[in-house]
């Protein structure tokens, strides 16, 4: 879609300017752009889940992919409200700006927001600085997510994962089936033919649904720009207090960071390519303060997105394992 049309909030396909496909036989109408097609596919997936499952939920992680997923959901059911709640598994170590953003968004949309915190983990004082990233993530995120899904009896959970994120995700289905204890069993994954999804499960089983499977990181950014989707300001470069921890620059977001670390804080112009727990999310030095800057930087960059995630380098090639354990 041409950006100038977007500014008018006009989505009339009829007014598309000619593209390379439609010069000859095919009329402009027939040629949706890649973003149009990705959008339509995601909406289709969401409507299928809403119609075929009993108790779906959207896992809202407050990041850019979640922002796109939420935007698509709003479109899918417009003018009605979302037919499912949003759920955020809050490890209590998220950036403060994420929490503010999350609460404001839910309110704006009139969406039901469930915030789940592993209270036991909180009582035990589990945190990345004291217990290491792997243990923290396992208890506060992976286990917490499973507990939350079981507690609310959700039979389907939307997640914002994409196939392009990791080599091992390339074969992941849009509908990913989980056993009663939330395990992913490679043998029970189903073929996905055309746009027909088989969403039938037995009691207690559940489905993770990834409506953004076919989006790439660049698609996500282009769509955010096209649709003017609001994202957490942490994605944009600003002067922020940063320290080096485990070889990765992280931001000082509160005083739970050990004092000796905090003392080393330096103000740097940084931004984040992904958002998670602040001690586990590597900052990148950058001056990219607008969406265009970010995309430009991304296109010119030479490292993949996940490099910024401390959790991944913690155990090499661990994505596959994480998936089996229910991290996604």
């Amino acid at each position: 879609m041409a950006p100038d049309l977007l500014l008018d909030q006009c989505c009339c396909v009829a007014t598309y300017p000619a593209t390379e496909d439609n010069g000859l036989k095919v009329l402009p109408l027939h040629t949706l752009t890649h973003l149009d097609r990705l959008e339509a596919e995601s909406i289709h997936i969401m409507r299928e889940v809403a119609a075929e499952t009993e108790n779906p939920v959207m896992l809202y992680s407050v990041g850019k992919d979640s922002a796109v997923m939420l935007h698509l959901a709003v479109k899918a059911f417009f003018p009605a409200k979302l037919p499912f709640p949003l759920m955020h598994v809050d490890t209590t170590w998220k950036f403060r700006e994420m929490i503010e953003f999350r609460d404001r968004k839910a309110k704006e949309l009139g969406a039901e927001l469930i915030v789940h915190i592993n209270e036991e983990g909180v009582r035990e004082g589990i945190g990345p600085f004291t217990h290491g990233s792997a243990h923290h993530t396992d208890v506060m995120k992976t286990q917490a997510l499973k507990t939350a899904l079981t507690k609310h009896g959700f039979d389907a959970a939307f997640g914002g994962a994409r196939r392009d994120e990791e080599k091992s995700r390339a074969k992941e289905r849009v509908f990913s089936f989980r056993t009663i204890d939330h395990r992913w069993d490679p043998k029970t994954q189903r073929p996905e033919l055309w746009s027909l999804y088989n969403a039938r499960i037995k009691p207690g089983e559940s489905i993770r649904v990834f409506p953004l499977s076919n989006w790439t990181e660049l698609d996500i950014w282009q769509y955010i720009r096209r649709e003017k989707i609001e994202i957490v300001p942490l994605y944009f470069a600003a002067d922020r207090p940063v320290v080096e921890w485990n070889g990765v620059p992280i931001m000082v977001d509160d005083d739970r960071m050990p004092a000796d670390l905090r003392e080393q804080a330096e103000l740097k112009s940084v931004r984040f390519r992904t958002l998670g727990c602040y001690p586990l999310t590597g900052a990148v030095e950058s001056t990219a303060a607008t969406l265009e800057d970010i995309i430009q930087e991304m296109l010119l960059t030479t490292t993949s997105e996940r490099q910024g995630r401390v959790i991944d380098s913690d155990q090499s090639a661990s994505m596959e394992k994480k998936k089996q354990e229910g991290y996604f």
């Binding site: 890649h34 196939r163 091992s168 390339a170 074969k171 029970t188 499977s213 090639a317 596959e320």
Partner: peptide, 27 residues
């Protein structure tokens, strides 16, 4: 694109990998 060893061994029943690239004209 051959993927991780683990991926090859995991025996997913339907084994289709989806990959993405783009040119100036198309995704």
């Amino acid at each position: 694109v051959d993927g991780l060893a683990a991926e090859r061994e995991q025996g997913i029943t339907i084994d289709v990998a989806y990959r993405f690239f783009a040119t100036d004209k198309r995704k």
